[in-house]
């Protein structure tokens, strides 16, 4: 069968066997001015460690741009370039296309170079979703788009994004005397959308760096498989979520163990629930109540018990009523959705 698409070779990136076998080198290092306990900075560090030195990283506007690289200073060891808020997809595509053609024409040395473009949930789930979607259809260009999701425009002052959970307090949805719940939209399901909508995309995954080895190995898989890939990382944000920074790691574990954040990967069209989520689905461990997760965060401090119950019921639906639990919100039967009156 004729191949119409020429996918260039990628780097061989075997999974890290264990945390004790990780390379010591850092390619994203100190000097950034992120918040105490910033999980997104941790994602950057692990992403760079997983990718290694022969990588080019593009960063769209957001915390990981403003706070990591304040002009004349940088935290990056590998080459890094800023791209516009909605341009992570375009940046990955343009960089990958340049490398491909320059190598083909012999204008630069022919070698596999990782191309990673990252964006926050504002840049990814809101403004940049069109460009990311387009890039995931360009099967001949190797790249990874990593969306670090701290569930708000955390850099600009914690305004709500399409990825902010229902009811959360943000500067654009702060509760008042009359209205308690100002944000009534449910979180956008980016990974599911990308996996379902882009048949040529060989790898889509959700990660949370509280499970660092799992996350780094997903990134290595995404970079090695060839073509455009997408990873959605949930990053607890002590600033916007309003919790004590020392809880950052635990907050990520709670998100996964409460079932709020399912871990999965879609590799060459094959869906696999991963990590703790796999055990939850297999009934090996029980989901912890969503309440334990919500009540540790100041952004939900205004929630009534009804609000918490509603949140729990939506998570239960995700696990019990979705045709593909935690991944795609198709259902067998229609039911009325009855949020508490705000």
């Amino acid at each position: 069968m004729a191949t119409y698409i020429q996918i260039d070779p990628t780097q061989k990136l075997d999974p890290f066997k264990s945390v004790k076998k990780l390379p010591l080198e850092e390619y994203f290092t100190s000097g950034h001015r992120t918040c105490q306990g910033c999980e997104s900075a941790l994602v950057m560090k692990m992403m760079a460690k997983a990718a290694g030195p022969r990588s080019i990283i593009l960063g769209s506007t957001g915390c990981m741009y403003v706070a990591n690289t304040t002009y004349y200073s940088t935290s990056w060891v590998v080459p890094w370039m800023h791209t516009q808020l909605g341009s992570s997809g375009s940046a990955a595509l343009g960089t990958s296309a340049a490398l491909k053609v320059l190598m083909r024409k012999g204008k630069i040395k022919n070698e596999p170079i990782n191309v990673i473009a990252f964006c926050g949930d504002g840049g990814g789930a809101d403004m940049g979703v069109g460009a990311i979607s387009a890039t995931l259809t360009h099967a001949e260009y190797n790249s990874l788009i990593l969306m670090y999701d701290n569930e708000s425009y955390a850099n600009t002052d914690i305004q709500l994004s399409g990825s902010t959970p229902w009811g959360a307090n943000t500067t654009f949805s702060s509760p008042g005397k009359v209205k308690r719940i100002m944000h009534r939209r449910w979180k956008k399901n980016m990974a599911g959308m990308m996996a379902a909508g882009h048949p040529e995309c060989k790898y889509v995954a959700t990660i949370c760096m509280s499970y660092g080895l799992h996350g780094m190995n997903s990134i290595r898989k995404a970079l090695a498989i060839g073509g455009p890939t997408f990873i959605h990382s949930l990053d607890p944000c002590p600033k916007g979520w309003d919790y004590d920074p020392y809880l950052s790691h635990e907050m990520g574990e709670l998100a996964v163990n409460s079932g709020v954040w399912p871990l999965y990967e879609v590799e060459n069209g094959l869906l696999r629930l991963t990590g703790r989520t796999e055990q939850i689905a297999a009934g090996k461990i029980r989901r912890v109540p969503v309440r334990d997760y919500l009540l540790k965060q100041g952004r939900f401090a205004h929630f009534t018990n009804d609000d918490i119950d509603y949140f729990q019921s939506k998570i239960d639906d995700m696990w019990e009523k979705w045709l593909i639990p935690g991944v795609i919100p198709f259902r067998r039967d229609v039911e009325a959705d009855t949020p508490p009156s705000s």
Binding site: L24, E25, V77, V78
Partner: peptide, 25 residues
Amino acid sequence: PSIPAGKAIEDPTTHESGGFRPDRN
């Protein structure tokens, strides 16, 4: 310029070097 990669650490007593210290901003 990006930050240099970093290097091994020297032990103050044995003067053996090993491990890793990332270059600091």
